[in-house]
Design a protein around this nucleic acid. Structure first.
Lengths: 340, 340
DNA sequence: ATCCACGATTTGAACGCTCCAATTGAACGT
DNA sequence: ACGTTCAATTGGAGCGTTCAAATCGTGGAT
């Protein structure tokens, strides 16, 4: 009943250890006839190779590292959990496992890389939450550690790696187009100050769509810091205009919830009087009925793994990093954009 | 620059391989003098033992498995991410790593246990979301795989394992007490039908506190299925009473949000006119200002790890499983219970 | 017949660590 | 002086796998 080893399987199939190994790793080397015989024994005994032994010998662990973010503001960050789930779920189908680690800032994270690489021979990392001047990508690239980022390399420089990201502009474009379709003409955008590149990306989608429809009003392009309260305050100003907007596209759900709060505070009806679209499709949005542009986490995870395989199989250093992959968000329509 | 091995360290310190190993694993066996010498070399070379080799030899991986749940309804489940983060963060301080896996149902999960145990020699598992008739605990116990659950063994039978849970009654007791303190007398409870044990636990806290204050009204004890819409409908009925409640304690944030929706729909002011308290302190609660009983995830994770260590060090099968640990939730007060 | 090439398979060593048994040397009692 | 004991240290074996090199047939060319 003890766990079978290569040796056991070999004995049972009347071949040598190595032949069994070959059946598993280099089937072309072994005669079809013996191969099926060995495979039968493998199945019969339920043999599975011992990863520790493999790792020891090959320096490959079939493990990818992923950081679990500390719970912060609570709204937008939550969707990363979906990504993590999708990643884990897909990875395990391919025999890969996801090893978690926690880190508070980039420097901690790099420390974790070191430990994980040394202790557990991790094969690769998946990074999220990339930002301008990201020290992590440089560190990994320098050491030729395979990795893929979910989030594009914002800093432009040293963008030399594989990445997957969601096309923010496409999301706001879809949102704005839909609002135009259902008759809105005065559509505002609540975005971040322009030091956040991701925000500009999303703003552009709105701006372009409005421009294409021949609509333009500087006053409807609002920049506020992240956070429900900021969203609320900005909305108050907008609704006080002589010709207030009838719809608002927001760079995040947090801001959209701020809009929601102010709209209901004034006794206006969300959807009917004022349409709201958020971004990220957080659980909160789903619960209260806020339309939102959802990031396709399943696709993102799948794309990351695909790129990762390419990176892992490529010679190091790879001539060209595969990718990038840019995914379109999906607009999820709920009560906040329903006219009745 | 290559990674140092025991052999290298030994040579450098002019001792044998085994002595270096002893310095690390059984320091008492080695003379203080040699010990410090070896330790110096270890520090100098930055030696860290190779986990794969250790695992191969000892069958211990320093890895614990944890399931990442598929994103479901989105409100209550989310807090598990906090738990996962706390667990990862604390575990890595002790040299343990968390390996993720995904599973859709108990049977899948057990399949994952098998794989993880065989492939990666996992040392233990942390289970969440325990429920009546949980097949997982039985499976693990039968095979003497160490594990700890976050969530008590609801089924009563075969409760023979270590667990950590949050005292739901304490949470609703705190909530109800606070509502009484700020002057409420008519306090309703929105809970689940009594097939969910966790729900009864929470209901009891409310009922006992009310009873102790000499208050009792059958009509204020409401049972509805989970979900915002059910919460809303139930609230509508309650507010239509001749003597409607001025405060509602809810078994989850989802239901509390339903209350919120109905209260605002009627033009009543949350907090001022009707107080609401939820349970779980979901991100949504934080964002919109819903008071809620927060499960102390940090403490829970810490407790799980502590129990786990006890379990791991105990002889198998252990005479008595350590624990259980019951933690008090913390009432987080926000606008929904503020009178002005 | 002999040799060589080639495919199929086997053997031995190694990965880095820990377990176990064995060795050393000092301290002690008689 | 001698064996005995005990603490400190060492060397060999082995965990299960893969890699490199060696071996074994077998058949075709010479």
């Amino acid at each position: 009943m003890a766990r079978p080893t290569l040796e056991i399987v070999a004995a049972r199939a009347a071949v040598s250890r190595q032949t069994v190994s070959n059946v598993l790793n280099s089937p072309h080397l072994v005669r079809p006839e013996t191969r099926t015989r060995v495979e039968a024994v493998i199945a019969e005994l339920g043999y599975r190779p011992n990863r520790a032994a493999q790792t020891l010998k090959t320096r490959r662990s079939q493990l990818v590292g992923a950081r679990i973010e500390p719970p912060r503001d609570g709204i937008n960050r939550v969707v990363l959990t979906h990504f993590l789930h999708a990643l884990t779920s897909r990875a395990q189908l391919q025999g890969l496992r996801v090893m978690l680690f926690a880190a508070d800032e980039d420097r901690d994270e790099i420390g974790q890389y070191e430990q994980l690489l040394e202790d557990h021979d991790l094969d690769a990392f998946v990074l999220t939450d990339t930002h301008v001047g990201d020290a992590r990508t440089a560190w990994l690239a320098e050491r030729q550690v395979p990795f893929v980022t979910f989030g594009r390399p914002w800093g432009a420089l040293s963008a030399y790696h594989s990445w997957v990201d969601v096309d923010g502009g496409a999301g706001t474009r879809a949102a704005t187009t839909h609002l135009l379709d259902i008759g809105h003409r005065r559509i505002a955008f609540l975005g971040w100050p322009s030091d956040a590149a991701a925000g500009d990306d999303r703003r552009d989608g709105w701006a372009q769509t409005c421009a294409a429809a021949g609509i333009h009003d500087e006053r409807l392009d609002v920049r506020v810091p992240e956070g429900l309260e900021h969203g609320r305050a900005a909305t108050a100003k907008l609704l006080d205009l002589a010709d207030p907007p009838t719809a608002l596209v927001c760079v995040t759900d947090s801001l959209a919830l701020g809009v929601w709060a102010e709209v209901t505070r004034r006794g206006l009806r969300v959807g009917r009087d004022v349409a709201i679209v958020g971004f990220d499709d957080s659980p909160t949005a789903a619960v209260i009925g806020l339309s939102s542009a959802a990031q396709p986490m399943d696709q993102a995870a799948a794309a990351c793994l695909e790129l990762m395989h390419t990176v892992l199989d490529a010679p190091q250093p790879a001539p060209t990093p595969p990718g990038p992959v840019l995914l379109a968000p999906q607009l999820v329509l709920r009560a906040s954009t329903a006219r009745d």
